[in-house]
């Protein structure tokens, strides 16, 4: 059995190795892009059943953002929705035989966490300004500056490890069980892994909301003013 920690390089483009994870992600992106384009062309004022489901998803995401971040959801919904969809689809891509979920590889999880890290800084600076954002590291006192800086990185690291650990362990266990037992034995574990994948997508998205919300929370008034202007 091959370790899930190992990434196989399919081919290289110059010095850039293209691994199975990247290729799977490309396929996933292509499928999602195709679905999004087809969906956007079919949008109507009188929604079809599919459009109603998609609108319900966007509405639920907006409600979740409002409940969690206490801000207008419009600026954050695309990023957070993309993160949720990416992780959800990546986790459930294990249903396709021979495909390892991209999220089972730490590079993908690190990439997602890196984007969340940058988004926190981006939205924090946009809401508070650079000075205001930097001042948040001195809250509640200057003594907390080192701890806040460490927390900024550790919570991102925790995002990486949580998602990677859950998904990788599921894939690992299923692989072990599959190598030891018959063909049908891993099915309950796979079903459990699907549930875990959905929950992890939700957890990762909600934590990203919490981190971004923490960065913009004191700048809510500025966001509200922008919302009113818009």
């Amino acid at each position: 059995m091959e370790s899930p920690l190992v990434t196989n390089v399919l081919f290289s483009i110059g010095p850039v190795p293209i691994t199975e994870t990247v290729a799977a992600t490309w396929c996933m992106i292509a499928a999602l892009a195709l679905a999004a384009i087809l969906t956007s062309r079919a949008l109507k004022l009188a929604p079809s059943r599919t459009q109603a489901v998609l609108e319900a998803f966007v509405g639920a995401l907006d409600d979740q953002i409002r409940d969690t971040m206490r801000v207008a959801p419009a600026p954050y919904a695309p990023l957070l929705g993309t993160i949720f969809i990416f992780i959800f689809v990546a986790n459930w891509s294990s249903l396709i035989p021979g495909v390892d979920p991209p999220t089972a590889h730490i590079e993908t999880d690190a990439a997602l966490a890196l984007i969340v890290f940058l988004a926190v800084i981006h939205f924090g600076v946009r809401a508070r300004g650079i000075g205001g954002y930097l001042k948040t590291f001195a809250e509640p006192s200057f003594v907390m500056i080192p701890l806040n800086i460490i927390e900024t990185f550790t919570r991102i690291f925790s995002l990486i490890v949580r998602l990677f650990g859950n998904v990788m362990s599921g894939v690992f266990i299923i692989g072990i069980v599959l190598s030891l037992a018959g063909l049908l034995v891993p099915i309950p574990l796979m079903a459990l892994e699907l549930l875990t994948g959905a929950v992890q997508a939700y957890i990762f998205t909600v934590l990203a909301m919490v981190f971004i919300g923490g960065a913009v929370s004191d700048g809510r008034s500025a966001d509200r003013q922008k919302e009113k202007k818009s």
Partner: peptide, 17 residues
């Protein structure tokens, strides 16, 4: 890839919806 997906979904899914 994630950023590209973010742009695609933002352009063709979230904003239209």
């Amino acid at each position: 890839n994630v950023l590209v997906l973010l742009w695609i979904l933002s352009r063709f899914f979230f904003r239209p919806v």
